[in-house]
Amino acid sequence: MTEPALEICNLVKHFGGVTASDDISLSIMANEIHAIIGPNGAGKTTLVSQLFGSLAPDGGKVRFKGKDITSLPTYKRSALGLARSFQITSLIMSMSVLDNVALAVQAHEGHSFKFWKPARKVETLRLRATEILQQIDLVERADSKVSALSHGERRQVEIAVALAGEPSLLLLDEPMAGMGAIESAQMVEILKQMKGEKTIVLIEHDMDAVFALADRISVLVYGRIIATGSPDEIRQNEDVRRAYLGEA
């Protein structure tokens, strides 16, 4: 917990008259799980999209491991060690689970201008992909098409794909979205394994999960960070209670 893995400096993003990111400054420390919570429409996904480069900010800077990445395209951020899971599952639906993860591994194994050898017979890719599927306990579904999976399983593949590039920083956009209680608990277990080893920015509505996992929490309301602190500090923060937790 010495130097920040990700620094967000004065980030601003407008959509018409709406300010989705209102001068956000935040430092994400290396190997912490940093949760960002906030009511619907607070600008959480907008923030993640800017961190990952799918949206360009109107102002401010994003630094990753000390390097300014504000205007870097997404695929280059991925190469630097940033990975993202999507709030709305985004996978290659027509391919199998293993193919999806193997593709993500392939993305980080040099260029893919290899036209002859069958990709499904490249052992390094398949083995690594299988390892990751074991890690998230989904190996028995390896050969199923993603379109045939349940919602919860797809969410797990989403994590597997994000992990495949061995990123140093994971941006998880509501990994538990739409999950049942049992599936959520499973996901919490998966994420717990990574605690202390990976830097994770976690956006989540499931408060039980957030308080179980996060080292620090930031609360985003109307595009502004109103508080940052440990789970206990956030629980006791008056502003947060009023704005968001609703005495929950």
Binding site: S54, S78, I92, D99, L103, A107, F115, V161
Partner: peptide
């Protein structure tokens, strides 16, 4: 081939392919 997998992946979901790197 690996190239073909990337091509077909991008047909299905380009945003995801870019996110993969």
């Amino acid at each position: 081939s690996r190239f073909g997998m990337v091509l077909q992946g991008a047909k299905d979901n380009e945003e995801r392919m870019r996110a993969m790197g």
